[in-house]
Amino acid sequence: MASVAKEWREIPGRYNLRGTKCGSCGKVFFPSRSFCPVCRRESIGKVEDYKLDRHGEVYSFSVVHEAPESCSMLKPYAVVMVRNRDGVLLSGQMVDVDVDAIEIGMPVRAVLRKLDADGLAGVIHYGFKFTPDL
């Protein structure tokens, strides 16, 4: 079981798609990084908080039939890699869609959804998933 603190700590990234942008080279990173892996020392003190654009297109996808315990009630479920409007690749589930209708290039947007829960009395995990951007 995960602690409440572990869930709380990741709220900016997992709920709100907050990443970072390097003030030196301008590259956007998700999840956030304390320094830019390309500019390294040059970037220290120049990394800014950056809210990612929620819109993008499907870059690749898969329908998961063999799932870990935490997702066993969802299967089969779709996962996608999405290239968002910042040019950043993201991974996550895709919902509110006929899984057979998903295709590369399909417009999608990130929404906040329940991910899973640590049993009946544990932490409920939330995070972004993607839906068709109609």
Partner: peptide, 8 residues
Amino acid sequence: YEAGLGVT
């Protein structure tokens, strides 16, 4: 950001 989101 992969397994925790359901990406296996």
